[in-house]
Computed example of a mutant assay.
Amino acid sequence: MTKRQQRMAAIGALVVGLGLAATLGFTAIRKNMMYFYTPSDVAAQAPSADATIRLGGLVVAGSVRRGEGLRVAFTVADCESEVPVHYEGILPDLFREGQGIVATGRVGTDGVFTAQEVLAKHDEEYMPPELAEKLTDENGKHSCAEFKRVVQS
Rank of each mutant, 00 (worst) to 15 (best):
residue 118 V to I: 13
residue 79 C to F: 06
residue 16 V to L: 12
residue 39 P to G: 07
residue 60 V to Y: 00
residue 49 A to S: 10
residue 114 T to P: 08
residue 45 Q to S: 15
residue 51 A to C: 09
residue 36 F to E: 09
residue 104 T to A: 07
residue 122 H to Y: 11
residue 115 A to T: 03
residue 82 E to K: 04
residue 36 F to G: 05
residue 73 A to H: 04
residue 64 V to G: 02
residue 85 V to K: 03
residue 22 A to Y: 12
residue 111 G to E: 04
residue 63 S to V: 00
residue 4 R to W: 13
residue 115 A to C: 04
residue 105 G to W: 03
residue 67 G to Q: 02
residue 95 F to H: 05
residue 60 V to A: 07
residue 55 L to R: 06
residue 63 S to D: 01
residue 18 L to E: 10
residue 120 A to E: 08
residue 1 M to V: 15
residue 49 A to C: 06
residue 37 Y to K: 03
residue 9 A to D: 14
residue 122 H to M: 11
residue 14 L to C: 10
residue 67 G to R: 00
residue 19 G to T: 05
residue 16 V to T: 12
residue 108 G to E: 04
residue 99 Q to H: 13
residue 127 M to I: 09
residue 60 V to L: 05
residue 28 A to T: 10
residue 24 L to P: 07
residue 85 V to W: 02
residue 43 A to H: 09
residue 37 Y to D: 03
residue 5 Q to A: 12
residue 38 T to P: 01
residue 82 E to V: 01
residue 93 D to K: 12
residue 92 P to L: 00
residue 97 E to P: 01
residue 23 T to P: 08
residue 59 V to M: 01
residue 55 L to E: 06
residue 115 A to G: 07
residue 33 M to T: 15
residue 83 V to I: 05
residue 83 V to A: 00
residue 43 A to F: 05
residue 125 E to A: 14
residue 92 P to M: 01
residue 45 Q to H: 12
residue 85 V to T: 00
residue 31 K to G: 09
residue 41 D to P: 05
residue 83 V to C: 02
residue 118 V to G: 09
residue 128 P to V: 13
residue 39 P to D: 11
residue 68 E to W: 07
residue 21 A to W: 10
residue 132 A to H: 15
residue 101 I to T: 05
residue 12 G to D: 13
residue 44 A to N: 12
residue 57 G to I: 01
residue 44 A to V: 08
residue 51 A to N: 14
residue 6 Q to I: 15
residue 123 D to L: 10
residue 99 Q to N: 14
residue 115 A to Q: 03
residue 65 R to Q: 09
residue 50 D to G: 04
residue 83 V to Y: 03
residue 22 A to C: 11
residue 29 I to Q: 13
residue 115 A to M: 04
residue 7 R to S: 10
residue 71 R to I: 02
residue 68 E to S: 11
residue 62 G to V: 00
residue 89 G to V: 07
residue 107 V to L: 07
residue 76 V to C: 02
residue 59 V to Q: 02
residue 108 G to V: 01
residue 78 D to C: 03
residue 37 Y to A: 02
residue 72 V to T: 06
residue 76 V to P: 01
residue 4 R to M: 11
residue 86 H to C: 13
residue 128 P to M: 10
residue 29 I to M: 11
